[in-house]
């Protein structure tokens, strides 16, 4: 049992931890604050910024550019769509590897992970040309496919580690009870793995939402998600701090909340179960 730490020590640690936590969080805090300031105030010194008036003007302006909504929906469709498709492919695959392991299962998993190591840039040219020739450039369908494929190894790995923890006897019991393979996966495995599937889903939505190589290369406007929308501010428009901040806040807020919500599962997921 832990002993009671002295209160002085606890106070020192508290101050240190909060200061560092504040420092790390500060850039995010700062864009949230700047988003509620006028353009004129946003470029002043930090103290002046803090004591200037608050306004929703920048949010109105960003809304007025009107394409924010489209980019937001593109982000939602791309991240949720690619994750759901990846799950549909990965659940049966993970079932196979977790409950009917063969001699090659470990190798297969390692190979899947290794496809994740292939640098995207190595296939940039052919992907670009394929997309161009099939008319998929700037289309959501093409990008959903690519995001599905790049996240598939991680989805399989995560589900595998979660499934491994479900005792095989329960699935055997279902088999003895007369369940077909479909019923076994649908009525027994999936409901039992709901927490694992949910966190896999969350993590992959986050990764897909923030993916910024293929989304930048393969979209321009129609299918462009928020990564592209924000990247457009890298031009001189970036100097409009307040609008940039408001837009950034809107781009990261949904995922930040989702991320906080799932941070525990995130660790297990991203380390493929190697750290619990």
């Amino acid at each position: 049992m832990a002993r009671k730490a002295s209160n002085t020590r606890k106070a020192v640690v508290t101050i240190a931890a909060w200061s560092i936590g504040f420092l790390i969080f500060f850039p995010i805090l700062w864009i949230i604050i700047l988003g509620f300031k006028s353009e004129g105030d946003a470029i002043k010194t930090p103290l002046q910024v803090l004591f200037s008036d608050w306004t929703l003007q920048s949010y109105h302006d960003v809304q007025a550019r009107s394409n924010y909504g489209r980019h937001f929906w593109n982000s939602v469709i791309l991240s949720v769509g690619s994750t759901v498709i990846a799950l549909a492919i990965a659940i049966p695959a993970a079932w196979s590897m977790a409950f009917v392991p063969g001699r090659r299962t470990k190798d297969l998993l390692m190979w899947m992970l290794s496809t994740k190591m292939m640098p995207a840039v190595g296939v940039l040219v052919p992907m670009y040309l394929l997309f161009r020739d099939f008319g998929l450039l700037d289309s959501r369908i093409g990008l959903v496919g690519v995001l599905t494929l790049i996240n598939l190894p991680i989805v399989v790995w995560m589900l595998y580690t979660y499934f491994k923890e479900i005792p095989g006897e329960i699935l055997e019991a279902a088999r003895m009870d007369g369940a077909s393979l479909k019923s076994e996966i649908l009525y027994v495995l999936t409901p039992m793995a709901v927490p694992g599937i949910a966190s896999t889903m969350l993590l992959n939505i986050i990764l897909a939402w923030n993916e910024a190589f293929w989304t930048l290369q393969l979209t321009t406007s129609q299918a462009a998600p928020l990564t592209q929308f924000i990247a457009s501010y890298s031009s001189p428009e970036g100097l409009f701090y307040a609008k940039l901040s408001a837009a950034s806040t809107m781009a990261i807020a949904p995922i930040l909340i989702l991320g906080w919500f799932s941070q525990k599962q995130l660790v297990r997921g991203l380390t493929f179960g190697a750290v619990k």
């Binding site: 790390i24 850039p27 995010i28 930048l216 890298s234 901040s245 950034s248 990261i252 930040l256």
Partner: peptide, 15 residues
């Protein structure tokens, strides 16, 4: 402390 991990790369770079 965990928050920056969820910020998309384009946003953090621009900020």
């Amino acid at each position: 402390v965990i928050a920056p991990f969820f910020v998309m790369p384009t946003v953090s770079a621009l900020v």
